[in-house]
Amino acid sequence: MSFFGNILRALALGAGVAVAAQTAVAQDNPSAVLDEIRASGELKIPVMIGEEPGYIKDPATGAWSGFYVDFLTDLATQLGVKVTPVETTWGNLAADFQSNKIDIAIGVNPNPKRGLVVDYLWEPLFTDAWAVLTPAGKPVATWAELNTPEKTVVVQKGSTMQIVAEALLPKATLTVVEDRNLAIMELQAGRADAMIQSVFDVLQIAKNVGGEVSVPEPMLRNPATLAVARKPGNAGYINFLTNWVQQQRSLGLAQGRLAKSWEDRGIDLSILPDNFSF
Rank of each mutant, 00 (worst) to 15 (best):
120 Y>P: 04
92 N>E: 12
194 A>S: 04
250 S>Q: 11
173 T>A: 13
162 Q>C: 04
174 L>E: 05
274 D>H: 13
103 D>H: 07
103 D>F: 06
86 V>W: 07
169 L>P: 08
121 L>T: 02
60 A>L: 10
132 V>S: 02
137 G>Q: 05
26 A>G: 00
215 V>N: 00
127 T>C: 07
51 E>N: 08
261 S>M: 06
161 M>S: 12
206 A>D: 11
250 S>P: 06
58 D>R: 01
60 A>M: 07
177 V>K: 10
72 L>Y: 01
164 V>C: 11
198 S>D: 07
259 A>C: 03
21 A>S: 08
59 P>Y: 04
177 V>F: 05
171 K>E: 14
31 S>M: 11
159 S>M: 05
223 P>W: 12
92 N>H: 04
231 K>V: 13
260 K>S: 13
243 N>Q: 13
76 A>G: 09
275 N>W: 02
228 V>C: 05
265 R>H: 12
179 D>N: 15
241 L>P: 15
119 D>E: 14
146 L>F: 05
241 L>A: 10
133 L>K: 11
100 N>T: 06
145 E>H: 03
246 Q>Y: 12
45 I>Q: 14
66 G>Q: 04
205 I>K: 05
236 G>Y: 01
35 D>F: 01
17 V>Q: 15
2 S>P: 13
267 I>A: 03
122 W>T: 14
27 Q>E: 02
173 T>P: 03
178 E>T: 10
206 A>V: 14
177 V>P: 02
133 L>N: 15
150 E>M: 09
246 Q>R: 12
240 F>K: 05
71 F>G: 01
70 D>S: 08
80 G>V: 06
210 G>L: 04
233 G>S: 00
41 G>R: 06
43 L>W: 00
76 A>K: 02
48 M>A: 11
267 I>L: 10
25 V>P: 15
264 D>I: 02
256 G>A: 11
110 P>E: 12
93 L>S: 05
57 K>E: 10
203 L>C: 04
219 M>R: 12
20 A>L: 11
84 T>V: 14
85 P>R: 00
218 P>I: 07
213 V>L: 07
141 A>V: 04
77 T>D: 09
73 T>S: 15
93 L>Q: 10
40 S>V: 00
162 Q>F: 01
37 I>W: 01
87 E>N: 02
237 Y>S: 07
239 N>W: 13
239 N>R: 15
108 V>Q: 00
33 V>K: 14
222 N>K: 06
49 I>C: 01
101 K>S: 05
156 Q>M: 14
15 A>G: 10
207 K>D: 07
33 V>H: 12
243 N>R: 15
191 R>D: 14
12 A>D: 07
84 T>A: 12
24 A>Y: 12
65 S>T: 09
109 N>E: 09
277 S>Y: 03
264 D>T: 01
237 Y>G: 00
211 G>S: 05
193 D>Q: 09
143 W>E: 06
215 V>C: 00
52 E>A: 13
20 A>Y: 03
85 P>V: 00
186 E>V: 00
256 G>D: 09
216 P>N: 03
263 E>C: 01
104 I>V: 06
175 T>I: 11
43 L>R: 07
163 I>G: 04
39 A>V: 03
25 V>W: 09
277 S>N: 11
165 A>P: 06
222 N>H: 11
148 T>M: 09
